[in-house]
Amino acid sequence: MQGDFKKLSEIKLGESAVIESFTDDTMKLKLLEMGCLPGEVVTVTRFAPFGDPMAIAVADSMLSLRMSEAANVLVSVRS
């Protein structure tokens, strides 16, 4: 089933996707609290100058996370 999903770290600048699930428990709890819930739309708004970390817009706020962290978030791209 995971085959249909992409990692958040693979989403390109300016593109949006829907959060599906998380592959890391600690990260999951932290992200859930901050409003990154399954079903929410995330938009990749910026990459730091060396390509890492990334900034995402989700649920009225802008969050930053490292690429290694974003790799733990599985998303589906809307067509």
């Binding site: 990260m27 802008m62 969050l63």
Partner: peptide, 12 residues
């Protein structure tokens, strides 16, 4: 001790 992370809010 644990994995590092850098999840934080970027305020307006």
């Amino acid at each position: 001790k644990e994995r590092s992370y850098f999840i934080m809010e970027i305020p307006v």
